[in-house]
Design a protein around this nucleic acid. Structure first.
Lengths: 170, 170
DNA sequence: GATTGAATAGTCAGAACTGAATAGTCAGGA
DNA sequence: TCCTGACTATTCAGTTCTGACTATTCAATC
């Protein structure tokens, strides 16, 4: 239901069409959810069917018509419920990158180190990118701060792992 | 491909049947991936079709026969490749719990605080649970350390958010 | 004023995933 | 010895998701 919460929350602030929603989410909320274009339309259709949102075809100039969505009162009620649920729960994170780590000892330490250094480079780049994000309004800023917080924590941790690995090599 | 890597890695260490794999993953690797039972079988079938693993029906006593899987040489090659890929890349994390945070300002601060305190309780319980995990052999311990590292970081961060929220309320 | 590349907007066939059910075993109690 | 609940093991029908595609507009370049 996280994506539904997100879509409702965005539509609540401003009516939008599917493409716009997808764009916004992938630009600004990539750290929270992944949402492919067809999935966005799929969810919007389902939400429309459930009566949470309504569609309006809008013809602008001689562009092809676009479907713009608005939140209904039922949708608003669902949003309020989902928001409280999301805030009150701690959703466990998944560290897919840990799967490789679990099998780290099947590689010679020197080689393992090489790959992890490559990972470190990718991570450092992400940290930089996160630092460069301009300030956002309201609580959206929280999301950015959270991302930065965890990315730097991750970098520190990876350096610890690399340090241990180097010790081991001696 | 993370789940394939995990399944191959486990099967490499010991031949197992689907149920066993699912059990092990959900007990020990829940912090890395979610893997439902039918999905495990689905992936195993696909991997068997690709020739990465082979199945052997084993009849034990008068139990229903079980299919035990073994990694083939091709499977081993895939494992080696996937392992290196996984180690070298930084897989971005998703913080589904941030979606609620992004809309925190649509709630009165006092109410928001109540829900986040509930979240804090759930999180604190997870931290405790993670501290209680017994030590594991080899690099599996890395996975546990990583989990602890991030859970405690998350707790610190949540406390910061709560602190700001309380300030705001004054 | 034609051509091209990028951005906008959406669709669909098929792949991936899972809730719920099925079916057998085993240990222990009535 | 029969029943029950917990465990082992798998399957299937249906839902959910996405890679790849279509199609239009716009702006820039030739």
């Amino acid at each position: 239901m996280e994506r539904e919460l997100l879509l409702l929350g965005l539509l609540r602030q401003a009516d939008m069409h599917g493409y716009q929603l997808h764009e916004f989410i992938n630009q600004n909320m990539a750290s929270c959810v992944e949402l492919k274009k067809p999935t966005a339309y799929y969810l919007l259709d389902k939400m429309a069917e459930s009566g949470w949102i309504t569609q309006t075809e809008i013809q602008e100039g001689n562009r092809p018509p676009r479907r713009v969505y608005q939140v209904t009162p039922e949708g608003e009620a669902v949003f309020q419920r989902l928001l409280r649920e999301n805030l009150a729960a701690h959703l466990p994170q998944r560290f897919a990158g840990d799967i490789g780590l679990a099998f780290l000892d099947s590689l010679p330490p020197a080689e393992a180190r090489t790959y992890l250094l490559e990972r470190r480079k990718a991570l450092a780049a992400e940290v930089e990118a996160a630092q460069a994000i301009p300030a956002h309004a309201g609580s959206m800023q929280l999301v950015i701060d959270h991302l930065r917080y965890h990315l730097t924590a991750e970098l520190r941790w990876l350096d610890e792992v690399l340090h241990h690995l180097t010790e081991e090599e001696k």
